[in-house]
């Protein structure tokens, strides 16, 4: 565990806490993509199957459980909470799951380090995470006056990815046999997806304006 990895994990955790607090305080999920949240649920379920087979550390187990529980809480609120679900932008959140899930599944079957159910699902989760934010970014682009908390949520998620890249560089330099090309490439793709958003987020922050993304 290095400082970049810890900072990355904490940023990831903070992003989810920001989203939970926002939804709980405002009783609204306006601007939040249910599709992205459900894709993250698939990512976490497929990746964390090793909770049953492999103990890494208490930290690792607890964080996995928190990510699973918090994501399912968000989905539950957006689908079933009697006040929050009314505020969901159903008509705007139209990204098709299959455009992301199917290519990632095929890629995971072809490009993996071991052709076993666990490893293919794990690899699938790596590919899917790289693109799971896309429905959220599309929804943000369609939303005028993105509220601060939704903007901060996406900014924190992007920061978490950038910190993971620093973590990989650090591990590559300090651990002799540490290589994971599929994860690195997916992670770099995932971070690139955020660059456009980062540009407008920082611009709006510097100009003290409300964030809006050009269509």
């Amino acid at each position: 565990m290095n400082i970049f990895r810890l900072a990355g994990d904490m940023t990831h955790l903070l992003s989810i806490i920001v989203l939970l607090l926002k939804m709980n305080a405002t009783r609204s999920c306006r601007g939040v993509s249910l599709k992205t949240q459900e894709l993250y649920a698939v990512v976490f379920v497929c990746r964390y199957l090793d909770l049953f087979t492999n103990f890494i550390s208490l930290y690792n187990t607890v964080m996995k459980l928190i990510f699973l529980a918090s994501t399912f809480t968000i989905i539950y609120w957006m689908r079933f909470h009697k006040v929050i679900r009314v505020t969901y932008d159903r008509e705007q959140d139209t990204f098709r799951y299959q455009f992301l899930v199917l290519p990632c599944l095929v890629l995971a079957m072809v490009l993996n380090s071991e052709f076993t159910v666990m490893e293919v699902l794990w690899t699938f989760s790596i590919y899917l995470e790289a693109v799971a934010i896309l429905p959220q970014l599309v929804l943000l682009q369609r939303t005028n006056n993105i509220d601060n908390l939704t903007g901060n949520y996406v900014f924190l998620l992007g920061s978490y990815r950038a910190l993971y890249i620093l973590n990989w560089i650090y591990r590559f330099m300090t651990e002799p046999n540490y290589r994971q090309y599929l994860v690195w490439i997916s992670g770099i793709v995932q971070t690139i997806v955020y660059i456009d958003f980062f540009y407008y987020y920082i611009k709006s922050w510097r100009n003290n304006e409300k964030l809006s993304l050009p269509a």
């Binding site: 492999n54 890494i56 690792n60 996995k64 990510f67 540490y178």
Partner: peptide, 10 residues
């Protein structure tokens, strides 16, 4: 304690 692969990451 930690294995040298990405599987120890979250």
């Amino acid at each position: 304690e930690e294995e040298e692969s990405g599987h120890d990451e979250l």
